[in-house]
Design a binder for these strands. Structure first.
Length: 910
DNA sequence: AACGTCCCGTAC
DNA sequence: GACGTACGGGACGTTA
């Protein structure tokens, strides 16, 4: 029977799960049919996707089975099914037959035993089995030729998932379940032992019998748990018999009879019509068929039905306690929920929660209004109380798009505990950084072929913009619930791709773990000296006034110094200064390089303009802008770190950008000095030395460069010595500077033109430098060629840690654009590799800091630098701790060096 | 008035 | 055109 693939649907399990996961819906005559609808959808999907060669749906038969003989308590206290579910049991069996699929059940046995027996028979015959269920009771069957598929989430469940959820292998599930028991089925287990305890014991002793023997013999150290094991040993053994599935049940139908058959279109059409499942009919292409017994038009599908299947909306508004309770139950049944929050402001930290949307399955989403100005809404407290246990439940996955934003907002509303999380924005970024943006609307258009309602459409823009709290609830529901729905669908689509793209570890170990770290950094903020900044701003203004007067005197009339256009016309049209260059739009260029050149040839005006420009920059971008960003509550500035923007894996910072605070010039450093430690604290700056050049030495495997780093040499001086043939000792600063520019140029994908511009030399001379460099380090040229070639064949390059950075222009016919993409390709593994390393350090820090007991927190990341705030008297050991974590964050063929400094302000900490 | 683009400059 | 990655301010031209 090799080549046979038998799909076994756990019909009874599905009915319960679908009933709880889907919102209520009824057909025309009032009969509830939500589980039937879910079932028909699931079967349609299975048939469409050609999952197997054989198919059957297995059901439980009756209420008593052989297990009641083992233990009369088994399933004894199971409550009657809900009233709305009862009529659906028969309807689901009808549905199965309508699809021409065998419905199998056998008195005295549960569906699980039949599934186990069919699976065993198939295994013996050398075929494959796919069990469509998410029931943990069936996980013990996973193994060679037997796999599981979650019917609602449409995701595979394999040994990895079992290990992730229960910490044991499928083969160990029986013993694990025997220990933990099952309150729903009244399987006793051992009191006090849950999934975690069971996994730990099995990990240590191997089997249930070994555990019980160790407990009885005293080989286990005395504890409450050991006492419980001794006292309940018999319960555990009985539990084992209850949870172990029978594989020897007589098969009611031979496997050959389960072969997939074409369904009877007319019969199926009539059944679906009777239920009002118009959308499924459409999917199966049965619209055109006339009804055999009744020619009137079929009733419109219930609203929920369209959503469940494929449509986006309409969605439910949750405004009664009953609806809220129903949704909480649906989330528990689904084991996951996609969540989106709506707020008064787009800044996560200073916003207020206006509503929460939830989605448990495609099309199944709802909105909980909380802070709308008009309309019936549940009290905030009641919603928080109902959702807190769900958000805090480690067994329920919370899916967000840009989780950090929602986590800020939820924490502000008293819902600080929400783990585990997934983030579709970060999943997309881990998969395809650089290929496209990772906003929800863009991903929805790309992957779901659906354009969601835009935020601006709901609130308006500009002067007409209204707060989300002023949006009518009905409109808010349509927008907000759709976002949760889209998030859930993106998750279903993208999550499985992580493994295929070898990005699973990158996502789970790095990007996802970074979320709480960044959240804490943003929350912490950094203290700035407001008075200092205000004073600086005034001083800069005064000096700019003076300079402006001088300039206007030199020019002979007033003009807007801030206008490059006016300035260019004055310099090159009016005053006829030499050396004018045009920008790409034809205007005169007036950037610093141009003005520098004019200054070189002896003009005073450009010098004054450069001075004015510097002050203008410092005043507007830094002094003034930062003052407006100070949080009045804590006198600190809180940036936002964007985790899915840069094509290389770097973070970016905005509102305000704290990753480009001046440092190089004397006046600029004054701005940096305004970033101060809180009273009783010191700032610690720790930065990687030459991390990108070290990565270059490592990935391009350049022995000479590696040796330099291993020997702790001054790398730029060494380069100068090699390229220009001068001794390291007594080297002049200009020579070293040239070598430094070459080293940077290499990292950026060097061109003679670029290097010439950088150094202010002729193209020809720059080319000679580069040639000399390549001659001395021949591996560089090989690395560059191989990297370009890899990018051309794959469309991306990868960092040493597996992050893919896409370079879309790599095959462009336009040589300029292609060259640009090639330089990106050469730079990305180095810049991205450095980003990976510092992120590794960042995710390792919280545990190390907690273990150290030091008062120390991370405030900022600036690509190769981490800035901390520590209690003053602990700054030294704190600096040593972070140096260690950062240096050990990765093991390369060259050492990583971290330099740390301590100071009362950011400038002095360097 | 609001938005998008350009030019420019800051960081790593 | 112009060696990599970002963010943002002010000017300016276009839209509403």
């Amino acid at each position: 029977m090799s080549g046979t693939r038998l799909v076994l649907v756990d019909g009874s399990g599905f009915i319960f799960r679908a009933f709880h996961a889907l919102p209520p819906m009824t057909r025309e005559d009032g009969t509830p049919v939500n589980a039937v609808f879910g079932f028909c959808n699931m079967l349609t999907r299975l048939l469409k996707e050609h999952t197997g060669t054989h198919l059957a749906v297995i059901f439980d038969a009756g209420r008593t089975t052989f297990r009641n003989a083992i233990d009369p308590r088994y399933k004894a206290q199971r409550p009657e099914p809900p009233e709305e579910l009862i009529p659906q049991f028969a309807l689901v069996r009808d549905a199965t037959r309508a699809f021409s699929v065998p419905a199998i059940e056998l008195d005295g046995f549960e569906a699980d035993d039949l599934i186990a027996s069919y699976a065993a028979a198939m295994q013996a015959a050398g075929g494959e089995v796919v069990i469509v269920s998410s029931d943990k009771d069936l996980m013990q069957l996973l193994g060679a030729g037997v796999s599981m598929l979650d019917p609602i989430k449409s995701i595979p469940i394999g040994p990895d998932e079992v290990m992730a959820k229960f910490g044991v292998t499928p083969a160990q599930m029986i013993d694990a379940q025997a220990l933990m028991g099952d309150s729903v089925d009244n399987v006793p287990g051992v009191a006090g032992i849950g999934p975690k305890g069971a996994a730990q014991l099995i990990g240590e002793y191997g089997t249930l019998e070994a555990i019980l023997a160790a407990a009885a013999s005293g080989a286990m150290k005395p504890s409450k748990r050991r006492d419980a094991l001794v006292a309940h040993a018999e319960d555990a053994r009985i539990s084992r018999q209850l949870v172990a599935l029978r594989t020897d049940v007589p098969l009611p139908l031979p496997i050959e009879d389960l072969v997939l058959a074409a369904h009877d279109d007319a019969a199926l059409h009539d059944f679906l019509d009777a239920q009002g499942f118009k959308s499924i009919k459409a999917r199966l292409g049965l619209d055109g068929l006339a009804r055999r017994h009744d020619e009137r038009a079929a009733p419109a599908a219930p609203v929920a039905a369209r959503g469940v299947e494929a449509g986006f909306g309409p969605y439910e508004t949750i405004d009664t306690p009953a609806a809220l309770a129903r949704w909480v139950a649906a989330i528990r049944a689904a084991g996951l929920v996609a969540i989106d929050t709506e707020t008064t402001d787009l800044n996560a930290r200073r916003t207020r929660l206006v509503g929460i949307s939830l989605a448990t399955a495609p099309g199944v989403a709802a909105y909980i209004p909380l802070g709308h100005e008009l309309g019936e809404q549940l009290p905030r407290g009641a919603v928080v109380e109902a959702l807190a246990p769900v958000l805090g439940d480690r067994a329920i996955l919370k899916i967000f798009h840009n989780a950090k934003f929602d986590l800020h907002v939820l924490a502000g509303a008293g819902l600080a505990d929400a783990a585990p999380i997934d983030d579709t924005m970060l999943i997309s970024y881990a998969l395809e950084a650089g290929a496209h943006g990772h906003g929800m609307d863009e991903l929805s258009a790309l992957h779901l072929d659906h354009k969601p309602i835009a935020y601006d459409e709901v609130t308006g823009t500009g002067r007409n913009r209204i707060s989300f709290s002023a949006v009518p609830i009905e409109r808010a529901t349509a927008y907000a619930a759709e976002d949760a729905d889209v998030t859930l669908r993106l998750w279903q689509m993208l999550r499985p791709r992580l493994r295929e793209a070898k990005a699973l570890a990158l996502y789970e170990m790095l990007e996802r773990r970074l979320v709480p770290v960044l959240l804490d950094m943003e929350r912490a903020g950094i203290m700035v000296d407001r008075d200092d900044l205000v004073a600086m701003s005034a001083e800069f203004a005064r000096r700019m006034d003076e300079i402006q007067r001088d300039i206007e005197q030199m020019v002979g009339h007033a003009f807007n110094l801030g206008s490059p256009k006016q300035l260019g016309e004055i310099l090159f049209d009016e005053m006829k200064l030499p050396g004018g260059k045009r920008t790409k739009t034809g205007a005169w260029g007036t950037d610093a390089a141009v003005l520098d050149e004019l200054a070189e040839v002896g003009h005073e005006l450009p010098v004054r303009i450069l001075e004015w420009r510097q002050l203008q920059k410092l005043k507007s971008t830094y002094a003034d802008a930062l003052v407006t960003e100070i949080d009045i509550e804590d006198r600190r500035v809180h940036t936002n770190f964007a985790q899915a923007i840069a094509a290389t894996g770097r973070l970016s910072s905005n509102d305000p950008n704290l990753q480009n605070i001046p440092i190089r010039t004397r006046e600029g450093a004054r701005i940096r000095r305004a970033f101060i430690a809180a009273p009783g604290h010191a700032l610690i700056s720790a930065d990687y030395s030459q991390i990108e050049l070290r990565l270059l030495a490592h990935v391009a495997d350049i022995p000479a460069l590696k040796a330099s780093f291993i020997n702790g040499e001054d790398i730029h001086a060494r380069t100068a010595s090699e390229v220009f043939g001068v001794p390291m000792e007594g080297m002049d600063a200009a020579t070293r500077r040239r070598a430094k520019a070459i080293n940077f140029g290499i990292i950026y994908g060097i061109s003679a033109f670029g290097l010439a511009r950088q150094l202010g030399i002729e193209n020809g001379e720059a080319k000679r430098y580069i040639d000399a460099y390549f001659a001395r380090y021949p591996e560089i040229r090989r690395y560059m060629n191989e990297t370009r070639e890899f990018a051309r064949t794959h469309g991306y390059v990868a960092t040493p840690f597996g992050r893919r950075c896409y370079v879309p222009g790599i095959a462009d016919k336009n040589p300029a654009r292609r060259s640009y993409a090639e330089r990106q390709a050469i730079n990305a593994p180095l810049q991205g590799g450095a980003a990976d390393i510092i992120k590794r350090a960042m995710v390792r820090l919280p545990a190390a800091i907690a273990a150290s007991g030091l008062t120390l927190r991370l405030l900022l990341q600036v690509h190769d630098e981490l800035l901390f705030e520590a209690a003053t008297d602990q700054a030294e050991p704190a600096a040593a701790l972070v140096r260690g974590i950062m240096q050990e964050a990765a093991v390369l063929s060259v050492p990583l060096l971290v330099e740390a400094g301590i100071g009362g302000n950011w400038s002095d900490a360097h």
